[in-house]
Amino acid sequence: MKVGLVLGSDSDIPVMKKAFDLFNEFGVECEVLLASAHRTPAEVREFASTAQDRGLSCIIAGAGMAAHLPGVIASYTTLPVIGVPLESGSLKGMDALLAIVQMPSGMPVATMAINGAKNAALFAIQIGAVSDPELAAKYKAYREKMTRQVMEKNDKLQQMLKTSDAVKTKLNNAAGQVLQAFKK
């Protein structure tokens, strides 16, 4: 599987790096482009319109504010496009979220949460796993590992609560004994 990852600005790198890191973890090839829908439209068009020819199976595009990048990319390709609204400006990413989620009919863009680059990568992996059994097995193992981690945290919490309850009981018993001693 090969995925495209497009960043609208170098300020997007810290958030979008989460997707890139996950692709590395899964062994998914990732083609990265830093380009703007407004400042470098020819580069965006070239990247998106030739993406399928280069073997990409989907494209993730992160954008803030007006967030035109995912929609512009979708207009130049029939590949699935996943938009990541990025927190920026005075609206803290709400403007980007609404811009991406409100694509016009016929130009779908899957929309993740604000700064949801990790989920975008996982969604891209799910898309690839449909036709790649090896990737599907890796994704299944990833999910199982997540489940184990949550259950281990729950076990620790339950132990802590039991210990806390035992301590409370001992303290209550001791307090009761002290009160009984004062009553005599």
Rank of each mutant, 00 (worst) to 15 (best):
M1E: 07
L5C: 06
G8I: 00
S9W: 04
D10N: 11
A19Q: 07
F20M: 08
N24V: 11
E29M: 09
V32N: 00
L33P: 01
A35M: 04
T40G: 02
T40I: 02
P41N: 09
E43P: 00
E46T: 08
A48Y: 04
S49M: 10
T50L: 10
T50F: 01
R54N: 10
A61T: 11
A61K: 02
G62A: 05
A66M: 10
G71L: 04
A74Y: 05
S75T: 12
Y76P: 01
P85K: 09
L86R: 03
L91A: 12
D95E: 15
Q102V: 05
M103A: 12
M107S: 06
M107T: 15
A110N: 05
T111L: 06
I114M: 03
K118S: 07
N119L: 10
A120I: 07
A121C: 08
A121H: 07
L122W: 05
F123L: 15
I125D: 02
G128N: 11
P133C: 07
K138W: 07
A141R: 09
Y142D: 06
E144I: 05
T147K: 12
K153P: 00
D155N: 12
K156N: 11
Q158A: 13
M160I: 05
N173A: 15
Q177R: 12
V178E: 13
A181V: 07
K184Q: 15
